[in-house]
Amino acid sequence: MQDQAPKDWLEAELQDTLDEDVEIELEDAVLSQEIARIYRDTHPDQMPRADYFRELLRLQSELIKLQDWVAHHKEKVVVIFEGRDSAGKGGAIKRITQRLNPRVARVVALPAPSDREKTQWYFQRYVPHLPAGGEIVLFDRSWYNRAGVERVMGFASEEEVQQFFDDVPEFERMLVRSGIRLVKYWFSVTDEEQQMRFLMRIHDPLKQWKLSPMDLQSRIRWEDYTKAKEEMFERTNIPEAPWYIVPGNDKKRARLNCMAHLLTMIPYGPVPHEDVTLPDRVFNPDYEREVLPHDLYVPQRY
């Protein structure tokens, strides 16, 4: 029994880990059967779940090694995630950070600028979120809002947009010269795929919060967003910080491809670790644990 107990405990821990992955993956559980059927029909070449989880866990274990390398060498990493609404940016970010230390890797998703921020230098609101040594920052949308939604929706004048295009290459070169490793991803989906994902969100109570009036406008202005994206690539794809496009129609493959590519962008390697040993608990024979009032406990409903 003593030999069996640790094994049982490790198996239980592994099962908890897999359950966590499955819980995250149950994104379509409350879809209407008809929407779910249509989605399956339009995505016949789904990656087998076992293969997906195997690769996901392998890549996440490598990301932990990357994180340790960044922390040990005081490196600074910025990863930008851009793309159309529902393209899968958030899902990729969630899987990348799922097992990382939030003190090392953090996500920045800024709201619309305040009236005060609108009067500032455009990049000013993003600068405080840049990493210090030993940090990884993932921007869920970034300063490229000006080239996309702000331009298409008329929140920025054409003069402001052109000023942005003039400024952003030098701004990013400054970041790179300062020692920041800057990686930029664009998640790409087709017109039909975005329409399908919006319909899924409409019919899924767990996802309706993701739909905003701005998202619905993006359907109407699909071609405007396409033109804005093309000019953005043309004017901001610089050698110091090139764009990398992630085909996103297949969510699982897009996540894995993005994670695998990110690992190739940073020359991480093994770092020294101190051996960890669990110290013995100190027992005080005079200590008696106090009985706490029952109403301090969460009700045991399950």
Rank of each mutant, 00 (worst) to 15 (best):
R253C: 03
P44E: 02
D166G: 15
V149L: 07
P111H: 06
F155R: 00
R146D: 05
E160T: 10
L10M: 07
F171M: 10
D115T: 08
M259C: 06
V104K: 07
E117K: 09
Y268H: 15
A92V: 05
V78M: 13
L211D: 01
V246G: 02
N284F: 09
G134V: 11
P205H: 01
A5G: 10
D286Y: 13
V77H: 01
R181E: 00
A12G: 13
E158N: 14
H294S: 13
D275G: 15
E23N: 11
K76P: 03
K118P: 02
I220G: 11
A132R: 15
V271W: 01
D85C: 05
K94D: 01
Q194G: 05
V77F: 00
Y225V: 08
V104E: 13
P44C: 07
L31P: 00
E290M: 12
D215A: 07
I136V: 10
L263R: 02
L31T: 04
R281C: 14
D19H: 13
K184G: 05
E170P: 10
G154A: 09
L14A: 13
W121V: 05
Q67T: 10
L10P: 04
R221L: 13
H203D: 12
K252L: 15
E288C: 11
E150C: 03
I238L: 14
E150H: 08
E290R: 15
A254P: 04
D3L: 15
R116A: 15
K207P: 00
D167P: 04
E160W: 07
R116D: 14
A105Y: 03
K94A: 08
P247K: 00
S142G: 04
H273T: 12
H73I: 03
L256R: 04
H43R: 13
Q124L: 07
V77E: 00
Q300P: 08
D191W: 12
D19L: 15
A147R: 14
P270F: 03
T236F: 08
E158I: 08
T226R: 15
G88L: 01
E234W: 11
L182M: 05
T97L: 12
E25G: 09
P131G: 01
R103S: 11
K252C: 09
E160Q: 15
V22Y: 14
D191N: 11
W143F: 03
R281A: 14
Y302S: 10
D68G: 11
F171R: 04
P285A: 14
L10H: 11
P239R: 04
D286R: 15
R197L: 10
L59Y: 04
D16A: 14
R58N: 05
V183A: 02
L59R: 00
I202S: 06
P111S: 06
E75H: 12
R289P: 05
H203P: 02
R40E: 02
L57I: 09
F81L: 03
L138E: 02
A156I: 07
